[in-house]
């Protein structure tokens, strides 16, 4: 006896992500999902981004980690509203799911912010699979990770809307081909905008900030 089903297995998350999207539209907030492997410099990139965007663009941050509140403790110093999610209470999940993001978004409030950044769990695989109701997805790759990561983790670079090549200040000390790293990202995602920058020295920050401000303005009419 055969029973036909034909259902998407992640439908529950997808339905919740759509609810999130509606909520963020009502609150008039642009949502950026930031993803990368652990240690790519996501938090430092974010720290410097917040320092330069605030207070003109009002930012809220949801930080996902399996354990510790280290990232939230760092980011709160920028004056942004920050909330930490630790997934160890939920089974040590390797990604943030739509319902978790909604819980935190409600706690943050979203009433008087223009941009909500979700710093996802450091992982180049799983977060790419889970829609959280974001408007754009950013992937951060640091030059220390090697040029071939986009080819090894194609889904992450396929689903991204923008990429940051971070830690370019370290290039003189590494045998890394920066152009090849960018070229590999473009092989996976030909029209992906890539910003080459250093969160430490803030080299190359302007084009990235400009991209982000335009995105926030396009959705919300705020922040420029």
């Amino acid at each position: 006896m055969e029973i036909k089903i034909q259902k998407r297995v992640l439908e529950v998350n997808e339905t919740e992500a759509e609810k999130n999207r509606k909520f963020f539209r009502e609150k008039n907030v642009f949502v950026l999902n930031m993803m990368s492997s652990p240690g790519s410099g996501k938090t430092e990139t974010l720290f410097k981004t917040l320092m330069r965007l605030m207070p003109k663009v009002r930012v809220g941050v949801i930080v996902g980690d399996i354990c510790t509140t280290n990232d939230a403790d760092r980011l709160v110093k920028t004056g942004a509203r920050v909330i930490q999610i630790n997934t160890d209470q939920f089974g040590g999940d390797c990604h943030l799911s739509a319902p978790l993001v909604m819980d935190s978004a409600r706690k943050i409030g979203c009433e008087d912010i223009d941009l909500l950044i979700v710093e996802n769990i450091g992982n180049l695989v799983c977060p790419a699979e889970f829609d959280i109701g974001e408007d754009s997805r950013a992937v951060v790759l640091s030059v220390t990770e090697g040029e071939d990561k986009p080819l090894k983790y194609p889904l992450m670079f396929r689903v991204a809307d923008v990429a940051i090549l971070n830690k370019i200040d370290l290039l003189p000390y590494l045998d890394v081909d920066r152009d090849l790293a960018v070229d590999n990202m473009k092989k996976v995602h030909p029209r992906l905008p890539v910003f080459e920058m250093s969160a430490k020295t803030e080299a190359g920050y302007e084009p990235w900030l400009e991209w982000l401000k335009i995105k926030v303005f396009e959705k919300t009419g705020k922040g420029l």
């Binding site: 055969e2 036909k4 259902k7 092989k187």
Partner: peptide, 28 residues
Amino acid sequence: PVFKCPFCEDGDVEMISGREIEIISLEL
């Protein structure tokens, strides 16, 4: 992992299939 259009090189490439995770049926 290469998604570049082999026909026009700089094309705007979209995915048609390959990301499905679906349950189709049960056999009892």
